[in-house]
């Protein structure tokens, strides 16, 4: 019954999560030379988080019951 309302709150939570992940100080942890799967660490981190945010938003929206 409350599902549609929760969708909005889930999205805001994703927003806040993203704000933290893309900001100092967390981003500074990955601001180092080094590679993951042959990709520079910082780029790997940002694109991974980015994809994760999109996935979370898609999950929040497409599972809503309305």
């Amino acid at each position: 019954m409350n599902r549609p309302n929760l969708t909005g709150q889930r999205l805001v939570a994703v927003f806040l999560f993203g704000c933290v992940m893309f900001n100092y100080p967390l981003i500074a942890l990955f601001n180092k030379t080094g590679k993951v799967f042959e990709i520079p660490l910082l780029y790997f981190y940002i694109f991974t988080v980015w994809a994760m945010l999109i996935g979370l938003m898609a999950w929040a929206i497409e599972r809503r019951e309305d």
Partner: peptide
Amino acid sequence: GIGFLPIYLGPTLMAGLWWF
């Protein structure tokens, strides 16, 4: 380097608030 990305990260974050 990474400086081109915020322009696309911002809209991604903002999309989370679109619902409201």
